[in-house]
């Protein structure tokens, strides 16, 4: 039953379904953090500018601060907590640790979710603003630092760990290319 300002919804997060009654004004970010206690997703700007709140909806990266919780019903939501469901870090996460892809760590969950989405976009052949010839199949072109910087530009890091983040993403891309 929905009254004018609230809605009963179910959110499927990291393969678990949660029933919630939310104020329609609640962002997905606030629902994840406050109602579901999934505090990995961070609130930086709350305006879609910093990327700290990035999650995956049906595998695609979005900013959860500009997504209304009520509008996310019916999607498969993956947060940073869902990237290593069995406690086993995935290669991207290990690369961030090994290559020092963070300092304070506040942006890291957003960087990780964004990189997972970004690597899938590249594998699907999506070009970027750094791609010279958009009519060619971009998945056939190897990612380089210029491509990674452009594709990850929606994620800010106030500590300036960008060189290591780029290396970690590139190393993961190389590993994925080998296993593909």
């Amino acid at each position: 039953m929905n009254d004018d300002g609230r809605s009963d919804i179910s959110l499927r997060v990291n393969d678990v379904t949660h029933g919630l009654n939310v104020d329609n004004r609640t962002t997905l970010l606030d629902a994840l953090r406050d109602a579901l206690d999934l505090t990995g997703s961070k609130k930086g700007c709350d305006r879609g500018q910093c990327g700290a709140c990035t999650v995956l909806l049906d595998g695609r990266r979005v900013v959860s601060c500009l997504t209304l919780a009520v509008a996310a019903e019916g999607t498969e939501i993956t947060t940073v907590e869902g990237l290593a469901p069995d406690g086993e870090l995935r290669p991207l996460q290990r690369a961030f640790i090994q290559l020092d892809g963070f300092q304070c760590g506040y942006c890291t969950s957003g960087q990780l979710c964004s990189a997972v989405g970004m690597l899938a976009e590249h594998a699907a052949g999506w070009p970027s603003a750094a791609t010279v010839d958009v009519s060619a199949d971009a998945s056939a072109q190897e990612l380089d630092a210029v491509e990674v910087r452009e594709r990850m530009s929606g994620n800010l890091c106030r500590c300036g760990a960008y060189p290591s983040i780029v290396r970690a993403v590139l190393e993961t891309a190389d590993q994925q290319a080998v296993t593909r």
Partner: peptide
């Protein structure tokens, strides 16, 4: 779009961020 109207693909890709373009 990329083959017949490549400037449109380039223009969309020049806007916002990967997250916002998905939304």
């Amino acid at each position: 779009v990329r083959r017949r109207y490549p400037a449109l693909s380039q223009a969309v890709l020049a806007g916002a961020s990967g997250q916002l373009r998905n939304m």
